[in-house]
Design a binder for these strands. Sequence first.
DNA 1: CCTATTTATATCGCACACGATATAATCGCA
DNA 2: TGCGATTATATCGTGTGCGATATAAATAGG
Lengths: 148, 148
Amino acid sequence: MQLTPPDMICFALYSAQHAMQQAYADLLDDIGLTYPQYLVMTALWAEDGRTVGALGRELRLESNTLTPLLKRLEAQGQILRSRDPEDERRVLIRLTEAGRALQARAAHVPGCLAERIGLPVEDLVRLRDEIHGLSDRLRQARQAASER
Amino acid sequence: MQLTPPDMICFALYSAQHAMQQAYADLLDDIGLTYPQYLVMTALWAEDGRTVGALGRELRLESNTLTPLLKRLEAQGQILRSRDPEDERRVLIRLTEAGRALQARAAHVPGCLAERIGLPVEDLVRLRDEIHGLSDRLRQARQAASER
DNA sequence: CCTATTTATATCGCACACGATATAATCGCA
DNA sequence: TGCGATTATATCGTGTGCGATATAAATAGG
């Protein structure tokens, strides 16, 4: 007896994440952002002026992913990267005027996505929380295993 | 008002998929497979001798992703790639003896994962089906949008 | 005060994903 | 039968993710 990919919850996540990223790509193409770039911009619209590390803790990404991504956003003129004078190890990420202006141009995205999905908000919220619960369990188990 | 990534169901999927892939990476490292390679091998253990296209339909991947991945599996000696004599456009993927033998070495993986997650099977099955439902809705909406 | 350790970010290499395009084989139909 | 359309796979370029490692700044302990 062999499980097939469609039976596996890991594959459900894998293919749903791809479908979601493609749905976002359709909407984000207009404003010139990739989906991970949009996540970073979303985090900055909510709270500007954070360090690379603080962004990484929110998005669960390391500097090896964030640094090149942030350099591309800087090259696009959406953000500025500068060393923190208080602690020269840290790099502060701040939105430019263009980066702030992009928020309005992306304001329709969550609504368009919700419309594409077509499920009641309560269902989405419940599903989101269940998926976060799964993530938390996986990360805790990994933490525990690495401390063995 | 700005949604933050943790509020967004897309980010729940995104981070859960990363956590899942890392959990698998811990287990698959021993047998020398990446997580996408494991998905392909799983599909082949269930049904050997399929074409690239048939694998792609099951895993929802295109040839631009599968071809290099399959070449790496071939270089590892897990599979053979050969043109279908019936239709020279198609490439048949068949397990080698080593590829079949790997099934036994990977047999513990689903159990280890379930243990890491630590949720009842019924919950996992329900969650899996809800996530598949979300994927289906996203793909249908994309299909509909592209036909506009 | 001076060095060992820790912390924050960056660099490198590899393996995906995927849009766009290329190539070759097969099919459809006049 | 011939040829344009379709199908199956491959190639190319870009952008992630991440393990491993490097580098530089800050901290801690003697």
